[in-house]
Design a protein around this nucleic acid. Sequence first.
DNA 1: CCTACCGATCGGTAGG
DNA 2: CCTACCGATCGGTAGG
Lengths: 217, 217
Amino acid sequence: MAETRKQVKRSVADGQDEANRRQALIRASARLFREKGFEATTVRDIAGAVGMRSGSPFYHFSNKQEILKAVMEEGLRQGLDRTEEALKAATTPQERFRAMVRTHYGILHDEGSEFIAVLLYDWRSLPDEHKQDIIAVKDRYDLLWQACLQEMLSLGLLGANSDHDKAAADDVKTARLMIMGAINFTVTWYKQHTGRGAMDLDALSDRTVRFFMREAP
Amino acid sequence: MAETRKQVKRSVADGQDEANRRQALIRASARLFREKGFEATTVRDIAGAVGMRSGSPFYHFSNKQEILKAVMEEGLRQGLDRTEEALKAATTPQERFRAMVRTHYGILHDEGSEFIAVLLYDWRSLPDEHKQDIIAVKDRYDLLWQACLQEMLSLGLLGANSDHDKAAADDVKTARLMIMGAINFTVTWYKQHTGRGAMDLDALSDRTVRFFMREAP
DNA sequence: CCTACCGATCGGTAGG
DNA sequence: CCTACCGATCGGTAGG
């Protein structure tokens, strides 16, 4: 009986260790993929980054593509969590819009948060049979944006249609694609530096919100 | 003397053929890079696409990276030409803005025009020593946008600062980064199809212009 | 531009 | 998770 309990404890701990090692591989992979791309990153790079030998990642993942999928899933999971958390503190449509913009910038540019940038950069490398799984989660995130922008458009606080009471579904989708495009594209040019004259994520968010948002009519 | 003339003629023709083969390699590479990425495209893929054997592209380019650079240069050259041409027909700031948006969409999505999409997707794969050359040409293109948006902002036809006579340089840059980001990001989601319900590049341009442009105050 | 080839490297596996 | 390894493929070259 004591024996049994001990064994159970041991295997729970092992399971934790294993999950930790898996997480370490995902984090290291995200950083490497973000830096030089999925195709240019070797399994040896990944293994080396967490102190393993070249064959060992395959104890945790059945192939390289599964690592890519795990990176993207981790990013979306974290992104949804952070966004829902940020929305709790926002009460007005304008505050919600600002919160979503700022949170998305964090998701894209915070240190240790390279998962979504990898999703954007290396989508082509994800095997077709995995794409639907990722899209399903991404759809949930897009819905949060859709609700936020629907609200903004209806109030005339955004882009076209400020003179209509109801924003058409197409307009909401266009607004989402344009705004998220603008924000996502910062992965190609925004660099966080600490020197003077640097623009931090708060400043970038301010500029973005100011550019897209209209005064209430 | 006749001999000499003939030889000159011949070598001119050869030079043409060689240039043609080089162009064919650039076009085929652009299509392949756009489809599956620079790293995932092999020299054998490229050679096969123009009916060559695997070693032959190296008669035209000293290595694979030089092909990538040539693809990007070709795209910027074509992009500048098309934009300057389109601007000739536009007389008002609004017309110029619309012309630049529509032309950029053409550059990104027209069939046989995959060069700039490759620049956006595979920038990381370009060796550092080539980046400055490409940036120098890209700067010329950005300047055309900068002038166009400066004009729009000063007239209060765009985003923030509609109540100021002079748009600050930072505002122009922000507007450019946001608008070009939104447009460039369409490479990740826009698909041209011919069926009903499809949005062609004219419709996409309309939506884009309408979303970003304000009524004159 | 082809033929023939090479050294290096890659993703992945067997067996412990 | 390591050791030891493999088949396949890759970018690139020599010689014509």
